[in-house]
Design a protein around this nucleic acid. Structure first.
Lengths: 227, 227
DNA sequence: CTATCATTCAAACGTTCGTTTGAAATCGAG
DNA sequence: CTCGATTTCAAACGAACGTTTGAATGATAG
């Protein structure tokens, strides 16, 4: 076992998953070929099919490895907050932080590949392949349900369908922010990587999202908030 | 010319562009093959290479056909508003509407394929292929510059880098909303297509975005807006 | 009608794709 | 050390990819 641990550095499966994460992010799921992937991982071409069954199954494994723990973390954090509040309603800001925190902590994980996965994840939401979208949808469903319930409790006066729209918008903001760590620099002057400090980003995102979530309803007046 | 107009219904090039738009949206740029595409368009396999040169050039043509007029429309609207204001600063809401209006009007164009293009566009922002991201970036750059300047004039007290972040967030919200017309339904209860009335969506987006844009700075207090 | 140009067409090009195969190598338990 | 199971390997599979070719067809001007 002592020698065993030295030879392959990491197990073949882990090595494949790490490289797949990176190449899927760089070239997309179709663009990253099995030959690229296995060559970079230093494993035989047949290894993916042997260990995972198929390329599609590999894609699923890549997501499952990170997404399941991430959503579990989200739910645990939300539950912790609710326990602490002891019956009292949570603030929308606290709920938002519980949701985006897990994503942002992953951005900071430069060594473990978490950051790579973040970008990949941000892209996956708009992936054309239906199978991937369905996979993501299934993995998020339970967490989404719980967070929606938490928002309803925090904002009982906000109409349900308005809430659903605003959650939709919030999710879009987060997804794009995750994906765009490296994507189109549409706005000149946008900072390079160094600005991706998770703490600062969390504050900025929370400020933007909670303001959007609490925006006056179309009917209402009062628009100005601060200047 | 009278008989000429009846035979191909539409010119070959237009027919290819229409089908390409649809298939790129459904299957992605790599996923939609030339054989699929030309078969569905009812043209010969070689027609794409004859008329456009290559598949990559076709992708560019698909974007250019819609994006150039769209950004021109955005800029014209912004200029119109500024002329009307005659020196006075525009409200952030007005600037936001000028920007998202063109996108939303395209969503309503169900017949002409504008809606298809909207979804495609929403996805393209997070496309892995660098060439496509650069293409989009180049096409947006001039409009982005002008709108950024407009926001600076409307919100002189807002620090520049804070503005850039918030424009980034706003753009993410819009992009995801465009792309997700048909994507992952992450939040149960989200309405199907019928809710995509551009007028209502524009009000909702503007409310969310302008609240986010005007959110209190991290330092400030005052969080609650409405309930 | 004829000559000229643009367009369409069927066929084939070479490459790369994901997957499969059966033998070789490596492993852990008895 | 031996045996059975697990893992790795080189090689090949058929299918699909984007592109090219040269001949056939169409329309147009002299």
């Amino acid at each position: 076992m002592s020698v065993r641990a030295l030879k392959p550095l990491k197990e073949t499966q882990t090595r494949i998953l790490d490289v797949a994460e990176e190449l899927f992010m760089q070239h997309g799921f179709e663009g990253a070929s099995m030959r690229m992937l296995t060559a970079k991982a230093g494993v035989n071409l047949a290894a993916v099919n042997y260990h995972f069954g198929s390329k599609d199954a590999l894609v699923e494994a890549v997501f499952r490895r990170r997404l399941d723990p991430m959503n579990a973390e989200r739910l645990a954090e939300l539950e912790r907050l609710e326990q602490e509040a002891a019956g009292k309603a949570l603030t929308p800001q606290a709920i938002i932080r519980a949701f985006i925190g897990a994503s942002l902590r992953m951005i900071e994980d430069t060594r473990g590949g978490g950051r790579t996965f973040s970008r990949l994840l941000g892209r996956a939401y708009t992936e054309p392949a239906k199978s991937i979208r369905q996979l993501i949808g299934r993995m998020y469903a339970p967490a989404m349900e719980r967070f929606k319930a938490a928002f309803v409790r925090a904002l009982p006066e906000l109409p349900k369908d308005e809430l659903v729209w605003r959650m939709h918008f919030m999710f879009g903001t987060l997804a794009y922010t995750l994906a765009a760590t490296d994507t189109v620099q549409l706005i000149a002057g946008a900072k390079p990587e160094d600005r991706y400090d998770a703490r600062v980003l969390e504050d900025r995102l929370t400020a933007f999202m909670s303001a959007g979530l609490l925006a006056p309803l179309p009917g209402a007046q009062q628009v100005r908030i601060a200047a």
